[in-house]
């Protein structure tokens, strides 16, 4: 199965699984989002905006509130205070079915209850488009999503028989098959080997180039620096810094937030910041 070989900017493969008829990607923004659960403040008045055509990484230490913010942006949980808006409309006002045509979410959980074959899992991603003209694209979208995530050869295998990384890629294929203009990815690289990590972020990159809004939670600061247009660093439920990777990822800030001294060097060829722990 061929991974993506296209150079960055060649939108051909991405365009075939481009935003569905749901239309133009819209900005997704949180305004003063605050989440309190049993007295614990998980998010403390976060302002965040993800723009169409850009990959926006959420980084921060464990328990910083990255996944909580992603959950709020996805509409999984309502903010205790503040608001989340999609294209200017409050998320809570958007019908679930319409929302499913606007944004797809990759969670950290890839388990399924019953032993569905991988292909049927990917097919589930087309559910929001059932009984719409976009339904005609189902087969092509599914095949394309499985090709892009390198899982076509697993089509008939049942999920329980797959490795963790393979399951993660099947889940990603399902998210891509949903063909939404907004992608919310929670640690999409967590279970993946080196090449598939790069593949996934290249895919995210291509989707953004084709006009999608991509928000991705990452732990690997190097990946975040290499693939993001914007980076938001979160700690203790609040935004520490947001902006271009090279502005946000400074040695002092990373040490202050993570408690680990690092060196930040520009890559000799590309100039992308390299973050190396001081050992």
């Amino acid at each position: 199965m061929s991974p993506i070989r296209m150079p960055r900017g060649d939108a051909a493969p991405a365009a075939t699984v481009a935003p569905g008829p749901g239309g133009v990607a819209a900005a997704l923004e949180a305004v003063g989002a605050r989440v309190v659960v049993e007295g614990a403040v998980l998010l403390d008045g976060v302002d965040f905006t993800a723009h169409p055509g850009r990959v926006h990484s959420l980084i921060g230490p464990n328990g910083a509130g990255k996944s909580t913010l992603l959950g709020v942006l996805a509409g999984d949980r309502a903010a205790t205070a503040g608001e989340v808006r999609l294209g200017g409309r409050p998320l809570a006002d958007i019908h679930l079915r319409d929302l499913a045509r606007e944004r797809a979410v990759l969670t950290q959980e890839h388990a399924v209850t019953f032993p569905f074959p991988a292909r049927e899992i990917v097919e589930m991603g087309r559910h929001p488009w059932a009984k719409t003209p976009a339904e005609d694209d189902d087969e092509r979208m599914i095949a394309e999503a499985m090709r892009l995530t390198d899982v076509a050869h697993l089509a008939e295998r049942t999920l329980p028989s797959l490795s963790g990384g393979e399951r993660a890629r099947v889940a990603l294929a399902r998210v891509l098959a949903q063909a939404t203009p907004i992608l919310l990815l929670d640690e999409p690289t967590a279970a993946l080997d080196l090449k598939h990590q790069e593949d996934v972020l290249r895919l995210a990159r291509e989707r953004a180039t084709a006009g999608a809004t991509v928000v991705v939670v990452l732990h690997d600061l190097g990946l975040a620096a290499a693939y993001s247009d914007d980076v938001t660093l979160i700690a203790h439920g609040a935004v520490v810094a947001t902006g271009a990777p090279s502005d946000v990822l400074t040695a002092e800030r990373i040490e202050a937030v993570y408690g680990q001294p690092v060196e930040v060097l520009p890559h000799p060829r590309t100039g992308v910041p390299l973050i190396l722990p001081i050992r």
Binding site: A74, G75, D76, L96, R97, D98, L99, A100, R101, R103, A104, V105, T107, E109, A111, V112, T113, F114, F116, E120, I121, M124, G125, H127, P128, Q178
Partner: peptide, 16 residues
């Protein structure tokens, strides 16, 4: 079928 993905997964695909 979508319930197999868990409650969140089903919701993300537009299921109430």
């Amino acid at each position: 079928d979508l319930f197999s993905l868990g409650e969140r997964g089903a919701r993300h695909l537009g299921v109430n």
